[in-house]
Every structure is written in C-alpha cells, then in structure tokens.
Amino acid sequence: MKRALRRILFCAALAAVVPAPAHAQSADLVLCDRLAADPSDPDKPADVKGVAEVAAADIATAIKYCAVAARSQRRAMYQLGRAYAAKGQINEATAAWRKAADKGSSSAMVELGVAYGTGTGVAKDEEQARKLFERAAEAGNPRGVSNLAALGGGGAPADPARSRELLGRAAQTNAQAQYQLGMMLSEGSGGARDDVGARAMFEKAAAQNHPAALERMGAFAAEGRGGSKDASAAKAYYERAAALGDEDARKALEKLRCPYVIKDKRGGVVTTLCF
C-alpha cells in the first residue's frame, strides 16, 4: 500500500514539472484548421494540410469553431475570414482579416490588400493595397511578394529586382516562394540569369511536392540546364507532377512517349509515332 502511494505521489510530482507538449491545441482550433486552413498560410503548422476553398457544407461549422479559436489564435481569425468569404459575407470577412492583420497575419494582410485593390467590401484604394502587400512581403509571404510586383499602380512599374530580393527571404522556408524565385532566376528577371540557382530552388520546392516545380525539374533534367542531363530523372519528375495535376508535365510525358511527329507539306501534324 505504501509502495503504491509513493508511486502515485511520484507520478503526480513528475506531471507537475514536465511541461505540456508545445503543439497541444484546443479542439476548436483543430476543427477550425481542418475545415478552413489555407494551404499557403505561413502560420499554418506543417502537419495541417489545409483546403483550397472552404466547402459549402463546412461553412457554418467552420465559422462556429474558428470564432472560438480566433480569441487566442491569429491564424484562426484569418480562417474565420475565409469561412465568412465562402459564405458571401464580405463585410464580416474583411473585418476578421483586419483583426488578424493587426495581430501580424501576413495572409490576412494579403486578403485585405486584395479587397482594397479590387474594391471588394471596401472602397477601392490601391495605395492601401500596396502598403498591405508590402507588409506581407516583408514578413516573407510569397503572395504578398507576387501581388506587390503585379500591382504597380500610380504609374510606377513593378520592380522585379525588389520582388527577387523579397522572394529570396521567403524562399528560405516556403515552397511557392522557392518556385517563384526559381522562375525569376531562370528567366533573368530582376537580375542575372542563373540556371544553377534556379535548379536549386526548383529542387527544394519539388522536394515538397510543388507540382509546377516538379515539372520545371523535369524540364531542367531533360535539357541539362543548371546541372546534369538525365532523361530517367526527367521522366520521374514529370510523372510526379502529372500525378498532382500539372498539365504541362502531362504533355511532356506524352512527348516522351511519342517523340516523332509526322507532318504534311503545310506543316500540319498528320500523326505521331509512339513507343
């Protein structure tokens, strides 16, 4: 009996000094993440998959749980805005995004910037949109970078060099930024062309199953750009990209399968020879 009591007291003392797991989350946040997390949100934990759009059948549930989780989590406030937007409640969505942006959510800054840039739910204000995109870009959000580059506005041209610099920061951790920076490096946009650097960026993004980066790795491996030429590796990259829905990769695989094209005297394709 005494031994059992000592064991209970020991376990209780151990529980008191061992901290709870840092990743422990409330049930409300777990459900909010499951139904409304944005796959591209830098705030999203790596083990949360996210959804491209909040499903119609999940909107009411997402609003319910995200509203509770938003009291303590900025990403939940951003996700609450996504759920409201999916329901067509734009005023509620922009209000949630404004609160999340004030708490530092770069994804909320981007959505709010889009709202100002298009005049959706708020008075159109491109200067305000620019400021929001700049804040998001400085925080390393790839969409903030690309939207800032595309916005221009006020007669000022987009600044590829600045976009390339900002993408370089975001590319340290983000697959989309790695892909975008790879494209700029491969095209010589915003600086010198760098096939080796581009291939390195595509390879990093491809390792995270980024479809377009996988397709680019296939092309670079097929052509020997920025590294060795490897037909087998190219095919493998194309197959992975095509499996994820990349249309360019699917076409590339078809060309590998049917490399010979027979044309008529006008240059029209008559048929292809396939293996």
Rank of each mutant, 00 (worst) to 15 (best):
Q89W: 06
M184N: 00
P157F: 04
A36M: 08
M1H: 12
K251L: 13
A242D: 12
E247S: 15
D248S: 13
G267V: 15
N174I: 01
A123K: 15
F275H: 10
R216V: 06
L166A: 04
S189H: 13
Q73H: 15
K49A: 11
G267D: 15
Y65N: 13
H210I: 00
A4C: 09
N174A: 09
W97Q: 05
L14C: 10
L185D: 05
R143P: 02
A136C: 04
A101W: 03
V51R: 09
A156I: 07
A149Q: 03
S189N: 15
K265H: 15
R34I: 04
P45S: 13
S228P: 01
F275K: 10
L132T: 04
Q176V: 02
D41P: 02
K64C: 03
Y65C: 06
F275Q: 11
P259T: 05
N147M: 06
L31N: 05
S186Y: 07
K44G: 01
A60S: 12
T118L: 12
D246Q: 14
Y237K: 01
F10W: 10
G152L: 04
Q178N: 10
L14S: 08
E254F: 05
A175I: 03
R266F: 15
S107Y: 02
D58E: 15
T118E: 13
V18I: 14
Q180P: 00
A200W: 08
L14G: 06
G218H: 08
G268K: 15
V54N: 03
S186Q: 11
V270M: 14
A205I: 04
E187P: 08
R169Q: 10
Y260E: 14
L29H: 01
R130K: 14
G182L: 03
A20M: 14
A46P: 03
A249N: 05
K2C: 07
R257T: 04
P42N: 08
D41E: 09
Q79M: 10
A177N: 03
S107C: 00
D125N: 14
L185R: 01
R266V: 14
F275M: 05
K44S: 04
V110Y: 02
K124W: 06
A96E: 05
G88L: 09
T271K: 15
A27C: 09
D47S: 12
Y238W: 13
K124Q: 14
A20N: 15
M217G: 07
G267S: 15
V18Q: 10
R164G: 03
A252D: 06
P21L: 11
G155E: 03
L29P: 07
A200M: 13
A129Y: 00
L132D: 00
H210Q: 12
A243R: 13
V48A: 08
S189D: 13
A101C: 09
L185A: 06
L35H: 08
S232E: 11
D125G: 12
K103C: 04
P142I: 01
A137E: 01
K124I: 07
G168P: 01
G154K: 11
D248I: 07
A15W: 11
E126S: 14
A123P: 08
D248H: 12
E53H: 09
Q172N: 13
A4K: 10
F133S: 02
